[in-house]
Design a protein around this nucleic acid. Structure first.
Length: 480
RNA sequence: GGCGACGUCGCCAAGUGGUAAGGCAAGGGUCUGCAAAACCCUCAUUCGGCGGUUCAAAUCCGCCCGUCGCCUCCA
């Protein structure tokens, strides 16, 4: 069964065939680093991280490029976002860039998002951007006007093919203020001239200025992935104008298709409405992680399909946290069992078959346009069987436990990233674990004496510290 | 106004022609010194509404109602 993906360009599901078999080149629009990352970023980048992880797990060599926008992305007031941040915090623009780039990676690391293979910065690729602008002028797709350069949309008939817009319809909605020196209101800037007060500016054939927002993605994606590559990703809210402009300028410059598959994530709302600073419902990843474990955030994101919109609320995240506990409990329990030195050798054929079937169900779900909700449902089904097995009296053979463990590690661990390596990631190392085991032993002795008051007191006080004890057939286990 | 996505149990969410997965919450039971966890049972004759196509529709078509996103910066 082939991997099938929904291609926004064709508006239907297609078999995924990379240009070079076994190699996938993907580009995802990255953040503009002028403030802390928010939960919308979390949704988009966890989704693409999972897609990249799955493609790798399926045996592809993936090159994942995700830009860092540190220049040229303007607010509707015409101000550069980076410069605005610098003025707000009274520091150099590049300090802003550095500060929020680091914060971005901290947040992504916390969420288990594996770093892209290349994270190119727009400001470090200005020469490449200038070259493309020159090419576009030579080919008659762009024109200079008073030190700025604009893309001539009328020169590219396919403009609108991704977002389904028509040029004629766009004219009406365009505001007077942005017309100015453009020939057509829907033309967009490739290069903007900048006065000396504008700190972020470079010398170009058209004088001092800075690159337009869209051109960086063309420059950096084609530089590292080639003129035509496999997957272009991003949030659906960038489909217009950003993605549309990328296609126009890239294909006009190279004369070749830009990206073969467009994968766009659904947007995220908070309590039913779009997140925005003015509404006061802006949630940063840092704030979120103060209250919730990172795996719960990942679980929340992956419990909806990447193309669907999701609505964030505290209740939803708490439910996700509980779901995550149930999802991971048997996986950790199996690992705990495997630490036992005297497990009977061999394996149970029926259980190996169950694990094989679960793996097949997982692959079939993920092969269908990365259907993570369905894939996780499959893990829950598998859990039911494993929980029953763990609760039973029959001894479990080492080979069986190993097969179960490797299933969890691959699907929940390597691909979905919701089952971490260590059962208690929040635990403070071995010393803390040792102390807890010591208390468990003391409690066991008290209970042997039927001194339940002492035993319950230990359990209660550990619970107050966030450590939950669970008494089972194999003794007491703990979790945070 | 235009473009797009969507409306499935109290909440979240799969399913896109063959007779409604899974999670959270809720109720009952088993186990337990008591818990917790786990397991078992219950929980949508029904998929926004109305028509149509079909042997058969949540799934296809039409109309209507509603929600969200984009059209100006956003992942």
């Amino acid at each position: 069964m082939p991997l099938v993906v929904y291609n926004t360009l064709s508006r239907k599901k297609e078999d995924f065939k990379p240009i070079a078999e076994g190699r996938v080149r993907m580009y995802v629009c990255g953040p503009t680093v002028y403030d802390y990352s928010h939960i919308g970023h979390a949704k988009t980048y966890v989704a693409f991280d999972t897609i990249a992880r799955y493609l790798r797990w399926r045996g592809n060599a993936v090159r994942y490029v995700q830009n860092i926008t540190d220049v040229g992305h303007l607010l509707d007031t015409g101000e550069d976002r980076i410069l605005k941040g610098a003025a707000r915090e009274r520091v150099e623009p590049m300090e802003i860039v550095e500060r929020y780039t680091r914060a971005y990676f901290e947040d992504m690391d916390a969420l288990g998002v594996q770093r892209p293979d290349i994270s190119p910065r727009a400001s470090a690729h200005v020469p490449e951007q200038i070259e493309i602008v020159k090419t576009l002028i030579e080919k008659g797709s762009a024109y200079e006007a008073d030190g700025s350069v604009y893309f001539d949309v009328s020169s590219f008939p396919a403009y609108g093919k991704l977002s389904g817009r028509k040029i004629e319809e766009l004219e009406d909605g365009t505001r007077e203020t942005v017309r100015g020196e453009k020939r057509h209101p829907e033309d967009f800037a490739l290069w903007k001239s900048a006065a000396p007060e504008h700190i972020l500016r470079w010398s170009s054939p058209w004088g001092w200025g800075f690159p337009g927002w869209h051109i960086e993605c063309t420059a950096m994606s084609t530089k590292y992935l080639g003129e035509t590559f496999d997957i272009h990703g991003g949030g659906v809210d960038n489909i217009f104008p950003h993605n549309e402009c990328e296609i126009a300028q890239s294909e006009a410059a190279t004369g070749k298709p830009f990206a073969n598959y467009w994968l766009l994530t659904g947007s995220l709302t908070v309590d039913g409405v779009k997140m925005s600073k003015s509404l006061g419902n802006f949630v940063t990843i840092k704030d979120l992680l103060k209250k919730h474990r990172p795996e719960a955030v990942r679980f929340f994101v992956l419990s909806g399909h990447y193309r669907s919109p999701i609505d964030f609320s505290s209740e939803a995240l708490e439910a996700a946290g509980k779901g995550w506990e149930r999802l991971t409990a048997p996986a950790f329990a199996v690992r705990e069992r495997l630490r036992s030195p005297d497990l009977p050798a061999g394996s149970d054929a029926a259980m190996l078959k169950v694990a094989e079937e679960a793996r097949a169900a997982f692959v079939s779900a993920m092969d269908d346009d990365f259907n993570t909700p369905l894939a996780m449902a499959g893990l829950f089904d598998f859990n039911k069987i494993i929980n029953t097995l763990l609760n039973g009296d029959a001894p479990i053979l080492r080979g069986t436990l190993e097969a179960i463990d490797s299933f969890y590690r691959e699907t929940g661990g390597q691909v979905l990233g919701v089952i971490p390596e260590k059962a208690s990631s929040a635990a403070n190392g071995e010393r803390e674990a040792g102390l807890i085991r010591l208390l468990i032993e003391l409690r066991a002795e008290a209970r042997k004496r039927k001194d339940f008051a002492a035993g319950d007191s230990i359990r209660k006080r550990l619970a107050d510290l966030g450590v939950t004890l669970e008494d089972g057939k194999e003794g007491t286990t703990w979790k945070l």
